[in-house]
Amino acid sequence: MRLTLKIWRQPDAATKGSMHTYEVDDVSEDMSFLEMLDVLNEQLNTNGEEPVAFDSDCREGICGMCGLMINGKAHGPEVTTTCQLHMRSFKDGDTITIEPWRAEAFPVIKDLCVDRGSFDRMIQAGGYVSVNTGAAPDAHSTPVPKPHADRAFDAATCIGCGACVAACPNASASLFLGAKITHLGELPQGQAERDTRVLGMVAQHDEEGFGGCTNIGECAAACPKEIPLDVISQLNKDLRTALRHA
């Protein structure tokens, strides 16, 4: 099939960017979206134009590196990561608009690449269990009831892609934050630091310049790992509890 692509190009963080239009031919429906961009880049390279920069690594939907705004939807029309989106979801003659994640806390580095270091700094602010290597008790010393283990797991499937932020009209990272609070908060191992974790992470969330959540729910709809909205409820509850204790 033949496609028209409108792509955000921006040489670096300091320079203003703009949308550019390209045509690609011979796109097969078995290609992944990123392979389609590889084809475009090969074409640009041949023509002496610099290829479009975009991030990807695993191309299996698990590393969270990829992530594009495709026709106004984070990761495109399917509930999956950009790398797992296939060209079957489009048809011949389509025009596809491709933009980077937009958020103050995710500055554009170049073209479609953004800096998501703010997520790492939120984890630094408390998204861990403080246990030194070698200091752990036997793994079977604390049984974890299965429902808790399962909910912790569901929340832990977050891949840190940032689609929740990209899709949220407020550019809030509450889903990402709620996922980590729920993951560690559901497990006995996470209890000791439960209060300090939520206080630290919420403070950092705001410091990074993310917006506040107003419970719109776009984030959960865009999340490729289908992290449910109730993790935000859990986050709010944990913060309330922590503030009472603080």
């Binding site: 026709n71 407020n170 310049g209 917006g211 506040g212 719109i216 959960a220 865009a222």
Partner: peptide
């Protein structure tokens, strides 16, 4: 306050943005 913050959190808007899940009422609060 939250409104202003949300604007600051996304200074550069999308050229195209579509709502997938958000209800009309949630977006018009």
């Amino acid at each position: 306050k939250l409104w202003a913050r949300a604007r600051g959190a996304r200074p550069q808007r999308y050229v195209v943005q579509k709502a997938v899940q958000a209800s009309w009422s949630s977006r018009t609060m």
